[in-house]
Simulated scan of single mutants.
Amino acid sequence: MKINLTKQSGIYTLTSEQILPISLNKAWEFFTLPKNLDKITPEEMEFRITNNPPNKTYKGQIITYKIGVLPMIKSNWITEITHLEDHQFFVDEQRFGPYAMWHHEHHFEGVGDNQVKMTDIVNFKLPMGILGDFFVGKFVTNKVKFIFESRYKILQKAFAS
């Protein structure tokens, strides 16, 4: 697993790579089923989908959530699937929620027999500009890294050979 987090011009970029011992088809089916997001999000985030999305992700799809953003503080979050190339990638973007900007690319690539390389690229900006960075920047960036570190462990366990 590789996780890298950088910041440039007020925008944070997290890149995460993970190899899973499953086929590209199985990975695509799993990650494009919206309800599986609950399964790969750490429990302490108190994440839950609040609308009833269909069992297939599609361009233009809106998904609504409740998520714990700070201790004892939950936020509504609305994302839209803005891009989708079958068995290659999809992008979700925040339409309303805790970030000033959120753009999350999910890439999938078959690598060898029955393995898939997943690459997540998340670009996000905190609300309130410099003040947001100063007051909650370290907390939020650590939380985003924690989510992807936890996701790695959850997926390794779920797809163990």
Rank of each mutant, 00 (worst) to 15 (best):
1 M>D: 08
6 T>R: 13
8 Q>S: 14
10 G>A: 05
11 I>V: 04
12 Y>D: 01
13 T>E: 07
15 T>C: 02
25 N>Q: 15
25 N>D: 15
26 K>M: 09
27 A>F: 06
29 E>T: 13
31 F>M: 03
33 L>T: 14
33 L>Y: 14
36 N>W: 06
37 L>A: 11
39 K>G: 14
41 T>D: 01
41 T>E: 01
42 P>A: 15
47 F>H: 11
48 R>S: 15
48 R>K: 15
49 I>L: 13
53 P>Y: 01
56 K>V: 05
57 T>Y: 10
57 T>P: 08
58 Y>I: 04
58 Y>A: 05
60 G>E: 00
62 I>H: 12
62 I>T: 05
64 T>Y: 07
65 Y>D: 07
67 I>P: 06
67 I>F: 03
69 V>C: 11
70 L>Y: 10
74 K>P: 00
75 S>D: 04
78 I>K: 11
82 T>S: 11
84 L>N: 09
88 Q>C: 10
93 E>C: 13
95 R>C: 04
106 H>Q: 02
107 H>R: 13
109 E>G: 03
110 G>D: 10
113 D>M: 10
116 V>G: 02
119 T>A: 09
120 D>Q: 02
124 F>L: 13
124 F>I: 07
124 F>R: 09
125 K>E: 12
127 P>F: 00
128 M>E: 03
128 M>R: 12
134 F>Y: 14
142 N>D: 12
143 K>I: 06
144 V>H: 01
145 K>Y: 08
146 F>C: 08
147 I>W: 11
149 E>Q: 14
149 E>M: 11
151 R>A: 02
155 L>M: 12
155 L>W: 09
159 F>R: 05
160 A>D: 09
